[in-house]
């Protein structure tokens, strides 16, 4: 067994300073520490406002943490501190090592659902500028095949695959998002309410996908308000402590 955790968070703190509100400071996370091993799924629990999503975003890089460290062991064995990573490093990590699935899909105009999913896989391959058109087409075809399999598993009607997801229902968009998040075997999976608007059948598909990711050694951090899903996938739970608002 590899004893080193895939993700090791120490003393992570995050506060928001609202300059348009007279410099009001909202301390959301304080001294958060946790370890996440390969094949584990840790569920963040606790009432709304405790910063569960904020923690996920700090790890994914869309929020900047103020203090602490978050050491991620990459697939090649190297380690990196997510909280200190440069923008270019974060983009590279997102491309190959970490996936983030939220309830909301940020739809790109005009890109069909199938390619929203397939592009994630193509992106990870990182084509060289001089890659010839033939090999690019072959890789695109393979990525689309993989995307079709996932979308079919998630019961997205094939009639929707060639349409841009902007007009899809919440549940349909969420399934596109899940397919995009799971198509690449990421080292670290961040799941923010992945089943929020899904029916029972599709919730079970997501549970299967999470189990498969655990079985291949992914480390998963998730927020699951759905009791059934949480009990099915979480290896253990962590409750975030309350922080108190202080005036500037």
């Amino acid at each position: 067994m590899n004893a080193r955790p895939v993700l090791s968070v120490r003393g992570l703190g995050k506060r928001f300073t609202l300059h348009l509100r007279g410099g009001l400071v909202l301390p959301v996370l304080d001294e958060v520490s946790l370890d996440l091993n390969a094949g584990e799924c840790v569920a963040l629990v606790g009432p709304s406002g405790r910063g569960k999503s904020t923690l996920m975003k700090c790890l994914h890089g869309s929020y900047g943490a103020d203090v602490g460290s978050a050491r991620l062991t990459l697939s090649d064995g190297a380690t990196t501190n997510l909280l200190q990573a440069s923008p270019r490093e974060i983009i590279e990590l997102r491309r190959r090592e970490m996936a983030y699935v939220s309830q909301f899909l940020r739809a790109v105009p005009r890109v069909p659902a199938l390619d929203v999913v397939a592009e994630r896989l193509l992106d990870a391959l990182g084509f060289e500028a001089d890659a010839d058109a033939e090999s690019t087409d072959a890789a695109l075809a393979a990525a689309r095949d993989h995307a079709r399999t996932l979308l079919a598993r998630l019961n997205l009607p094939p009639g929707l695959w060639q349409l841009p997801p902007a007009t899809f229902s919440g549940g349909e968009q969420q399934r596109v998002n899940i397919a995009r998040g799971f198509i690449l075997p990421a080292t670290l999976l961040l799941l923010d309410e992945p089943t929020a608007s899904l029916d029972a059948a599709n919730r079970r598909v997501v549970i299967e996908l999470i189990d498969e990711a655990k079985a291949r050694g992914a480390a998963i951090l998730g927020i699951f308000h759905d009791e059934e899903v949480r009990r099915a996938v979480a290896t253990h739970e962590i409750e975030l402590g309350a922080a108190h608002a202080i005036a500037a």
């Binding site: 928001f16 300059h19 348009l20 890089g61 869309s62 929020y63 900047g64 923008p87 974060i90």
Partner: peptide
């Protein structure tokens, strides 16, 4: 300056916060 989603989702400078809001 920084990662686009960080600048837009977690803006630090008062002017960026104004722009985003």
């Amino acid at each position: 300056q920084g990662l686009t989603d960080r600048v837009l989702d977690d803006p630090r400078h008062p002017y960026t916060q104004l722009l985003v809001s």
